[in-house]
Amino acid sequence: PAHPYDRLKTTSTDPVSDIDVTRREAYLSSEEFKEKFGMTKEAFYKLPKWKQNKFKMAVQLF
């Protein structure tokens, strides 16, 4: 299930529990994912792991 970005980011005051914290981005809706990352999930997962992590750090999901 998708969760709002505000509850997934590492600085959230009301974090979602029971998620894989190493894959926070996977819980974003497709729309919100595209808004935050500027690309689709499919394109994101084709990137090298280090680049994925760099993007995730930039949007507080790492």
Score class of each variant (00 low, 15 high):
1 P>E: 13
1 P>F: 09
1 P>R: 07
1 P>H: 13
1 P>W: 12
2 A>H: 15
2 A>N: 15
2 A>Q: 15
2 A>M: 14
2 A>E: 15
2 A>Y: 15
2 A>F: 15
3 H>R: 06
3 H>P: 08
3 H>K: 04
3 H>D: 05
4 P>Q: 05
5 Y>L: 05
5 Y>K: 04
6 D>T: 00
6 D>H: 00
6 D>F: 01
6 D>W: 02
6 D>L: 00
6 D>C: 12
6 D>G: 00
6 D>A: 00
7 R>F: 10
7 R>G: 10
7 R>Q: 09
7 R>E: 12
7 R>Y: 09
8 L>E: 10
8 L>K: 02
8 L>G: 08
8 L>W: 05
8 L>T: 03
8 L>A: 01
9 K>L: 09
10 T>W: 08
10 T>N: 13
10 T>A: 04
11 T>W: 05
11 T>Y: 06
11 T>V: 03
11 T>L: 02
11 T>M: 03
11 T>E: 10
12 S>G: 03
12 S>E: 04
13 T>R: 08
13 T>N: 12
13 T>C: 14
14 D>L: 06
14 D>F: 06
15 P>E: 05
15 P>C: 10
15 P>R: 03
16 V>D: 04
16 V>Q: 02
16 V>Y: 07
16 V>M: 03
16 V>K: 02
16 V>S: 02
16 V>C: 11
16 V>E: 05
16 V>A: 08
16 V>I: 12
17 S>H: 14
17 S>I: 12
17 S>D: 13
17 S>F: 14
17 S>Q: 15
18 D>P: 09
18 D>W: 04
18 D>C: 13
18 D>I: 03
19 I>S: 02
19 I>H: 03
20 D>R: 02
20 D>F: 02
20 D>I: 02
20 D>C: 09
20 D>H: 03
20 D>E: 11
21 V>Y: 10
21 V>R: 10
21 V>I: 13
21 V>G: 07
21 V>Q: 09
21 V>S: 06
22 T>K: 08
22 T>A: 06
22 T>C: 13
22 T>M: 02
22 T>L: 06
23 R>T: 08
23 R>H: 11
23 R>C: 15
23 R>A: 07
23 R>I: 12
23 R>K: 14
23 R>E: 06
23 R>L: 05
24 R>I: 11
24 R>H: 08
24 R>Q: 06
24 R>E: 01
24 R>C: 11
24 R>N: 07
24 R>P: 05
24 R>G: 04
24 R>D: 04
25 E>D: 02
25 E>N: 02
25 E>K: 02
26 A>W: 15
27 Y>S: 03
27 Y>T: 05
28 L>W: 03
28 L>I: 04
28 L>F: 13
29 S>K: 04
29 S>I: 01
29 S>Y: 03
30 S>C: 14
30 S>M: 14
30 S>A: 14
31 E>K: 10
31 E>R: 06
31 E>G: 08
31 E>N: 07
32 E>D: 12
32 E>H: 04
32 E>Q: 09
32 E>W: 05
33 F>R: 00
33 F>D: 01
33 F>M: 01
33 F>V: 00
34 K>C: 15
34 K>E: 15
34 K>F: 15
34 K>T: 12
34 K>H: 15
35 E>N: 07
35 E>R: 08
36 K>E: 00
36 K>F: 11
36 K>N: 10
36 K>A: 10
36 K>W: 12
37 F>S: 00
37 F>M: 07
37 F>D: 00
37 F>E: 00
38 G>Y: 05
38 G>Q: 12
38 G>F: 05
38 G>W: 08
38 G>C: 12
38 G>D: 07
38 G>H: 13
39 M>L: 07
39 M>S: 02
39 M>Q: 03
39 M>R: 01
39 M>N: 00
39 M>F: 08
40 T>V: 06
40 T>Q: 05
41 K>L: 07
41 K>Q: 12
41 K>D: 05
42 E>H: 08
42 E>W: 09
42 E>N: 15
42 E>V: 11
42 E>R: 08
43 A>C: 13
43 A>D: 13
43 A>V: 10
43 A>T: 13
43 A>M: 13
43 A>F: 12
44 F>Y: 07
44 F>I: 00
44 F>R: 00
44 F>A: 01
44 F>S: 00
45 Y>C: 07
45 Y>A: 06
45 Y>K: 03
45 Y>I: 02
45 Y>Q: 04
45 Y>E: 13
46 K>G: 14
46 K>L: 09
46 K>Q: 12
46 K>P: 00
46 K>C: 14
46 K>F: 10
46 K>I: 12
47 L>T: 00
47 L>H: 05
47 L>A: 01
47 L>F: 04
47 L>K: 01
48 P>N: 05
48 P>H: 01
48 P>Q: 02
48 P>W: 13
48 P>A: 06
48 P>E: 03
49 K>Y: 07
49 K>A: 12
49 K>F: 10
49 K>M: 13
49 K>G: 09
50 W>L: 03
50 W>H: 09
50 W>F: 07
50 W>R: 05
50 W>N: 05
51 K>P: 00
51 K>R: 13
51 K>V: 14
51 K>H: 07
52 Q>C: 01
52 Q>M: 02
52 Q>V: 01
52 Q>P: 01
52 Q>A: 04
52 Q>H: 00
52 Q>F: 01
53 N>L: 12
53 N>K: 11
53 N>T: 10
53 N>H: 08
53 N>Q: 13
54 K>V: 13
54 K>N: 12
54 K>H: 13
54 K>I: 10
54 K>R: 13
54 K>S: 11
54 K>Y: 13
54 K>C: 14
54 K>G: 11
54 K>A: 12
55 F>D: 02
55 F>K: 15
55 F>N: 02
55 F>E: 11
55 F>C: 12
55 F>H: 14
55 F>W: 12
55 F>V: 07
56 K>H: 06
56 K>C: 08
56 K>E: 03
57 M>G: 04
57 M>N: 08
57 M>L: 12
57 M>E: 09
57 M>K: 12
58 A>L: 14
58 A>M: 12
58 A>Y: 11
58 A>N: 11
58 A>T: 12
58 A>Q: 14
58 A>D: 14
59 V>W: 08
59 V>S: 06
59 V>M: 15
59 V>E: 06
59 V>H: 08
60 Q>L: 13
60 Q>S: 08
60 Q>I: 09
60 Q>E: 14
60 Q>P: 06
60 Q>V: 05
61 L>Q: 03
61 L>W: 08
61 L>N: 06
61 L>K: 04
61 L>D: 03
62 F>Y: 15
62 F>K: 12
62 F>R: 09
62 F>P: 09
